[in-house]
Simulated assay, not measured.
Amino acid sequence: MIQMHMQQGLSQDARIIRQEVFVEEQGFHHGKGAERMGLTYWIPFFIVVLGNIGYHVVAKATPVSAPPFLALSVTYLVSFFLCAAAYVVTGPSLRQDLSASNWASAAWGL
């Protein structure tokens, strides 16, 4: 409200210059706002969308007659092997890392 009263005393040119300075400070002038929305913005979006599409395609492909606990067990077994393979590639030492973990790691499975 106070800013409005202050702007009323300015000439039209001064108001335009003030608005351009504000817009430029915010980074939206001359397409700078579009530059902010680069790949770092869109990659997580596409991961979520593609993951959601993949989930629904696989869910529809799962037979209705499949026992739910067996299907879930197979899902977690595949996930276990993928995680174990990723650990073997990136982890330094299984013995060292197991000694550093505690009961909380197992509790996450509950």
Rank of each mutant, 00 (worst) to 15 (best):
H56S: 13
A59G: 06
K60V: 11
A66Y: 12
L82H: 01
V89A: 13
H56T: 12
F80E: 02
V48L: 15
Y76D: 00
L77P: 03
A66N: 01
S79V: 13
V78P: 00
V48Q: 02
L72F: 12
S73D: 08
I53W: 10
F80Q: 01
L72P: 02
V89S: 04
V57T: 07
S73V: 05
I53K: 00
V64I: 10
V89Y: 05
S73F: 12
A66D: 04
S73Y: 08
S65H: 09
I43W: 08
Y55I: 08
P68Q: 09
F81A: 09
L50I: 14
L70K: 03
Y55H: 11
F45W: 15
A66S: 09
V89M: 12
V48R: 08
V88P: 00
N52S: 14
P68K: 10
V89E: 07
V89Q: 09
C83D: 10
F46S: 07
G91V: 03
Y87H: 02
I47P: 00
F69V: 09
S73R: 07
F46D: 03
P67F: 04
G54R: 01
C83L: 14
T90A: 14
Y87L: 10
P63F: 01
G51Q: 02
F80S: 04
V88T: 06
T62N: 08
I53R: 03
S65R: 10
V89L: 15
T75K: 08
P63L: 07
V64L: 12
A85T: 03
Y55T: 10
A61C: 06
V88H: 06
Y76G: 08
L77V: 13
V78K: 02
N52A: 14
A71M: 03
F69P: 11
V49D: 02
Y76K: 13
G91Q: 03
W42M: 01
F45E: 05
A59V: 09
G91E: 01
I47W: 01
V48C: 06
V58R: 09
T62I: 11
T62Y: 01
A66M: 12
A66G: 04
A85F: 11
V64S: 10
T75A: 13
P63S: 07
A71H: 04
G54C: 11
A61Y: 08
K60N: 13
S65Q: 10
L77M: 10
C83E: 15
I47A: 09
F80W: 06
V64P: 05
V74P: 05
P68N: 07
T90G: 00
S73L: 13
Y87E: 02
F80L: 10
A59S: 10
Y76A: 04
F45H: 14
Y76N: 07
L77N: 00
V78N: 02
T75Y: 15
V57A: 09
S65Y: 07
N52H: 11
F46V: 05
N52I: 13
V74G: 05
V78H: 02
V49H: 06
L50D: 02
F69W: 14
A86L: 15
P67D: 15
Y55L: 14
L82G: 15
K60C: 09
A85M: 14
